[in-house]
């Protein structure tokens, strides 16, 4: 099939031209899904948290667009509430966001082609946060490789823009929510990730990593507060990888 496309460059180009808009739109539509809805609910909860903390509408919308990852924003608002200094706040946010690096490392080879320009990948990496990462790891496999960056651009930009609007609307419209409703909105995020992370695993080791990570998050929070995510990632992830290697050796031998 690829030989065919090479021998007819004009037709291939034409098909690609049509394909870009189609796959961008497919990405946009993918964001209007259960995960997108859950994320939006979590942002309703976040916006009311930010408003209670005394932040302005413009500041909160700006924060949503520039940071995007929800846990990092919750840490930032917490530090602002606590009156932390700029360096201490930056350190706390950076520590809560280390996971973004391995998430991006895992995602990039799925999207990249030999012809992908680096600035496209740097730009798209801004959209990486748990929801778009899980959605992408799930759906990119069914997208033609050439169209994956386009697809992810549609998915990521729609999620960011839609939630910037949602944050603004919460500031403009919502009166204070009843505490049970806020609690239920906050709870949506962890239980959504709990289910979707399981489904996005590539190999059994992903499930092992998830179970060990769930157990080690709170454990390391108590043992080494501030470094719990780093420790949980390296130790639980490392153990899952060791399990993966041991399983494979067993397969080869047995």
């Amino acid at each position: 099939m690829s030989d065919n496309a090479k021998s007819e460059p004009q037709r291939a180009e034409h098909q690609q031209g049509e394909g870009r808009a189609y796959w961008y739109l497919r990405g946009v539509l993918r964001s209007f899904s259960v995960p997108g809805l859950v994320l939006t609910s979590a942002f309703i909860g976040f916006a009311s948290l930010a408003r209670d903390a005394g932040l302005s509408l413009v500041q909160t919308v700006f924060m949503t667009g520039m940071i995007w990852a929800l846990p990092a924003k919750v840490v930032l608002v917490g530090a602002i509430l606590a009156g932390s200094s700029l360096p201490a706040t930056a350190l706390a946010v950076a520590l809560s966001s280390v996971r973004l690096a391995p998430m991006v490392v895992a995602l990039m080879p799925e999207m990249r082609t030999p012809r992908t320009r680096p600035w496209v990948l740097y730009l798209l990496s801004h959209f990486v946060a748990i929801t778009s990462w899980v959605l992408a790891m799930e759906s990119l496999r069914s997208v033609p490789r050439e169209m994956r960056t386009t697809y992810y651009a549609g998915l990521g930009s729609t999620l960011v823009l839609a939630n910037m609007i949602v944050v603004a609307l919460v500031f403009l419209l919502a009166s204070h929510l009843p505490p049970q409703v806020s609690a239920a909105l906050f709870f949506l995020t962890p239980i959504y990730f709990l289910t979707s992370l399981w489904g996005s695993a590539r190999e059994r080791a992903g499930h092992v990593a998830m179970i060990l990570g769930l157990a080690s998050g709170p454990l390391f929070r108590l043992l080494m507060p501030g470094f719990e995510l780093l420790a949980a990632g390296l130790i639980a992830g490392g153990a899952a990888y060791a399990w993966h290697r041991a399983q494979r050796r067993k397969e080869v031998v047995g």
Binding site: P179, P190, G213, L214, Y241
Partner: peptide, 26 residues
Amino acid sequence: VFVRCVATALVAAVIANLVVFPGGAL
């Protein structure tokens, strides 16, 4: 595979901490 394991474990740790040590109304 190792990087995916680390990323997955990190996200799982975030999830567990959101349940065990939540902020806000929760």
